[in-house]
């Protein structure tokens, strides 16, 4: 990964905007921002962003690759789509944020110990297993993502909710034994694998371009 990162730095020296355009989901749109700031002001998580979207776009243009990719900002996105709805320039900001986050993670530059990164990864791993999300397992793995002791503490804190969910049959403890899933799990996993390969190849080829 870091090898890929070095190659990318080499290839796109001075032109992070181009790198984003080539390799980040919906990255081509970054150039269209006119710095009005409506996205930054519209974000419900606004106060927690070190750099709000519009500033990230400016940082991309100003070639601040490290700062952008190691930022925890993109991980604050709640996918509420306020920014997209209000952007006067049609930028799919939510997707660009997801794209930047994914790209940072892929290159190993994303901040360590960022809870959303972990949750997001756990979610993905969970769904990769059977093609559908197993909420109980996801929940439990979430509680234990920072180690056993903290996990027990968190799970204890959440026990009332868990109990409430169970009592209303909205959480099934038996799910731990298996749960829902697609029938053709191998095919499903192959499909995702193929998609991942194609995507990785695209990025690798951009280095060679």
């Amino acid at each position: 990964m870091s090898d890929l990162n070095t190659q990318l730095v080499e290839k796109y020296r001075n032109n992070f905007l181009q790198e984003v355009k080539d390799n980040v989901e919906e990255g081509d749109w970054v150039k269209m921002c006119m710095q009005c700031g409506v996205c930054s002001g519209s974000c419900p998580m606004g106060p927690y962003w070190d750099h709000p979207p519009q500033e990230i776009f400016m940082m991309i243009r100003a070639n601040k690759r490290e700062e952008v990719l190691s930022s925890n900002s993109m991980w604050m996105c709640t996918s509420c789509y306020n920014c997209i709805a209000r952007c006067p320039r049609e930028l799919p900001i939510t997707h660009i944020m997801h794209g930047l986050a994914h790209y940072a993670k892929r290159l190993g530059l994303a901040p360590k110990n960022q809870p959303t990164i972990k949750f997001s990864q756990l979610f993905w791993d969970n769904l990769m297993k059977k093609g559908r999300v197993n909420e109980l397992k996801l929940g439990l793995s979430l509680y234990f993502m920072n180690g056993f002791a903290e996990g027990v503490k968190k799970a204890w804190k959440m026990k009332d909710i868990g109990l409430g969910m169970t009592l209303t049959r909205r959480l099934n403890p038996l799910e731990i034994l298996g749960g829902h899933g697609v029938k053709d799990q191998t095919g499903f996993q192959n499909m995702i694998k193929k998609a991942q390969e194609l995507e990785a190849a695209r990025i690798e080829s951009s280095v060679k371009k």
Binding site: L17, Q35, M58, A62
Partner: peptide
């Protein structure tokens, strides 16, 4: 025209 400039990849810096 401004949008077209951006679309063509011109960077604008305030």
């Amino acid at each position: 025209f401004y949008r077209s400039g951006q679309d063509k990849g011109i960077t604008f810096t305030k």
